[in-house]
């Protein structure tokens, strides 16, 4: 991949990801509503929400919270741009962790018990899914000989076949990463899940708007990571990847509505067992091949 292509792709992500992410969020809400026997809001509802957030009175619980959330948004966008520019997968994951840390600090800094408990739960869940993400990167490297996303995307043959264990594990981690039930421990989009709003309890107005937009960006990047398993440098691989990514999101919506929230112990135990069996197992197979 040339530099120009990389820059163009990153720009495309920068501009189109919020649009696509917003549409996905709308579809999510519509579908969820239908599954629950409701009519549901229009697809553009997430966009209306964000616009309304922007117009709310500007209040905050302290002087540093908005800064942390802004950094979260910034580093999520940077991560996504790096991903689409085809850079090093490990660096992408590390940058994402950096962004994530800012979000957790934002939740901690308010000093509200609700948001702090949310932050701690976010940390638990992160501990549960992080091994899977790292193992996915390692498996890609063992299969394609490179950590660079550009190289991985244009390598011969779909990586998903030798990496099938890691792929399934990644889908499992995706539920946690997208904060979908049963692992929406830190904050939930569903009113029936939380007593108060978890991590975001003390966020309001523009801060909340920034958070929503970061989710749009982040979701698109995560789905692109799903697609990466199918990319083989051809249009066919790209198309298959796109379809599977959308299907994966629909699957997550379905799981989201099909499960009640589980205890954090379940998240951690199951996350690590999946990482150990499917992830490490798959890596062993790759090492032996």
């Amino acid at each position: 991949m040339s530099d120009i292509e990389a820059i163009i792709l990153a720009l495309v992500y920068l501009i189109l990801a919020p649009v696509a992410g917003c549409v996905l969020a709308g579809v999510d809400r519509k579908l969820s509503a239908r599954m629950q026997g409701r009519r549901g809001p229009p697809i553009r509802q997430p966009y209306y929400d964000v616009r309304k957030f922007m117009e709310k009175e500007q209040i905050t619980s302290n002087g540093v919270q908005d800064f942390y959330v802004a950094c979260y948004l910034l580093f999520v966008i940077v991560t996504g741009c790096m991903f689409f520019a085809g850079m090093d997968l490990l660096l992408v994951l590390f940058t994402l962790t950096l962004g994530e840390t800012f979000l957790i600090l934002a939740a901690y800094c308010s000093g509200s018990p609700f948001s702090q408990v949310g932050a701690q739960r976010e940390l638990y869940v992160a501990m549960a899914y992080e091994p899977i993400l790292l193992l996915a990167a390692i498996a890609f490297y063992l299969q394609t000989g490179s950590f660079a996303i550009g190289d991985i995307a244009s390598s011969d043959g779909m990586a998903v076949i030798p990496l099938i264990g890691v792929f399934v594990a990644f889908l499992y981690a995706l539920t946690m990463k997208l904060r979908k039930s049963p692992f929406d421990l830190s904050m939930s989009h569903h009113a029936h899940q939380d007593l108060v709003r978890g991590m975001t309890t003390e966020f309001s107005g523009r801060t909340l708007a920034m958070l929503e937009v970061s989710h749009w960006y982040e979701n698109i990047m995560l789905l692109a990571l799903v697609a990466l398993f199918f990319m083989d440098g051809t249009w066919v691989g790209f198309a298959v990847g796109l379809v599977v990514a959308v299907l994966a999101y629909l699957l997550e919506v379905y799981i989201d509505n099909g499960f009640a929230r589980m205890k954090w112990q379940t998240a951690l135990k199951s996350g690590w067992v999946v990482a150990l069996v499917l992830g490490v197992g798959n890596v062993i197979v790759l090492l032996l091949m």
């Binding site: 009175e57 209040i59 619980s61 002087g63 000093g111 509200s112 609700f114 003390e202």
Partner: peptide
Amino acid sequence: TKRRVVPNY
């Protein structure tokens, strides 16, 4: 911050 600082919920 330019915002009004309010106590926690």
